[in-house]
Structure formats: structure tokens, C-alpha cells
């Protein structure tokens, strides 16, 4: 079994019309054993910028601390809020600095920039960014998610439609992915508020 699926976990993000949705499962395991059932893989970085870290969660914690450190330094030095584009570049740099001994975590960034344009991106363990306009998925349920999202994503979805599409996608994925599950958390980021919803899935 690969180190990337040792703890399990899935993160997905979808872009809509002046809104983005980012969702993750809540399980952490040690291969087949479930260890915790309340661990979000999505973290708040700034008001409208969130980061998801799938893969080996021990590394994900370390990477999150490094991301927060660099982001805080940026905001102090520049005296302005970080944009999701800048954050993804920053994480990509951080990941590539460890090119020959990488952190076993795949980062995902979702957020709105200062014009409220949605931005989503995901990268591999060494920081190769891909930033499509529709949706991104990382983690053990990636294959399940890409198939479902392909069918549910539509152009210019409003926040409630976007939430429904994201929630249905991750729910369908968790039904089949044994390494993720135990509920899901969905963040809907709009220009004036962030809505957090915890959804029940099958609990096994």
C-alpha cells in the first residue's frame, strides 16, 4: 500500500459564479483501521481562501504549518490579504523546494480573489499546479469524484446549486471509497459569507 493512501482522505473543490465550494471527508485511518472520525482536511487560510491537504496527514499537518507561516509573513510584509493565486504559487514553491524528499501530501487551493472571481487549483506532491475552470479533486477518492463531478458540474452555478453539486459528488464518492468517509464537511465561499455544512454519510 502506498504512503499516499496510508491515512486515506479526499478533498474536492468546485467553482461557480462568484462562489467556490470546497469539501472533504472526516476520516483518518492507519491503512484499514479507522483512527479518527472528526478530522477535516480543509483549512482556512484567509477569509475567502481555503486550502485542502489530502494524502499522508502527518505531512499535511507540517505543510499546513509551513503554509500558515509563509502566508503570515507575506501579509505582514505586503500589508494586504493574500489572493488564492498567490497562495497556490507559494505552496507550489514550498513543495518544489522539497523536490527530492517531498512531503507526501497533495495540496488544493480554493477561494475568491479581490474581484470575487473564483479560483481553484490542485497540485501533485512536488507542486505542479493545475488550475482548471470547473473542479478539482485529490486524495484516495479522486477517481470516483472526477467521474461524478464531470456529470454534475455546470457553468455559472449559484451558491446553492454549487453546494448541492459538491455535496452530491462527495457523498457519491464516499459511498464507494473505503479509505474516506465518516461524514463530510462542505464550505461554500461567497463574496460576503462562508457557509459551513457538515453532512452525514454512511458511517463505516
Amino acid at each position: 500500500m502506498s504512503i499516499m493512501s496510508y491515512t486515506g482522505g479526499t478533498v474536492v473543490a468546485m467553482a461557480g459564479d462568484e462562489c467556490v465550494c470546497i469539501a472533504s471527508d472526516l476520516r483518518i485511518g492507519e491503512q484499514m483501521t479507522t483512527v479518527a472520525t472528526d478530522q477535516k482536511k480543509v483549512h482556512k487560510v484567509s477569509d475567502k481562501v481555503y486550502v485542502g491537504l489530502a494524502g499522508f496527514q502527518s505531512d499535511a499537518r507540517t505543510v499546513l504549518e509551513k503554509i500558515m507561516f509563509r502566508k503570515n509573513l507575506y501579509e505582514l510584509r505586503e500589508n494586504r490579504r493574500i489572493k488564492p493565486q498567490v497562495l497556490s504559487e507559494m505552496i507550489s514553491n514550498l513543495a518544489y523546494q522539497h523536490r527530492f524528499g517531498s512531503y507526501f501530501t497533495e495540496p488544493l487551493v480554493a477561494g475568491l480573489d479581490d474581484t470575487n472571481k473564483p479560483y481553484i487549483c490542485c497540485m501533485d506532491t512536488i507542486g505542479c499546479v493545475s488550475s482548471p475552470r470547473d473542479f478539482v479533486a485529490i486524495g484516495t477518492g479522486q477517481h470516483y469524484l472526477l467521474g461524478v463531478c464531470e456529470n454534475y458540474w455546470r457553468e455559472n452555478m449559484k451558491p446553492d446549486e454549487l453546494f448541492e453539486a459538491t455535496a452530491q459528488s462527495i457523498l457519491s464518492c464516499l459511498e464507494r471509497d473505503a479509505a474516506s468517509g465518516w461524514g463530510a464537511v462542505v464550505y461554500t465561499i461567497t463574496k460576503d459569507k462562508v457557509n459551513v455544512a457538515t453532512i452525514k454519510t454512511r458511517m463505516d
Partner: peptide
């Protein structure tokens, strides 16, 4: 090859698991 992409979609639409 596309089994993991098709099955969860049908789970949702036909099985109504969600």
C-alpha cells in the same frame, strides 16, 4: 477502466444512496 467513474454516478442516480 472507467468503472470507478461510472459506478458512483449510478449509485447516486439509480441507487439513490445520497
Amino acid at each position: 477502466a472507467a468503472e470507478p467513474m461510472i459506478i458512483p454516478f449510478l449509485d447516486c442516480q439509480i441507487g439513490h444512496v445520497t
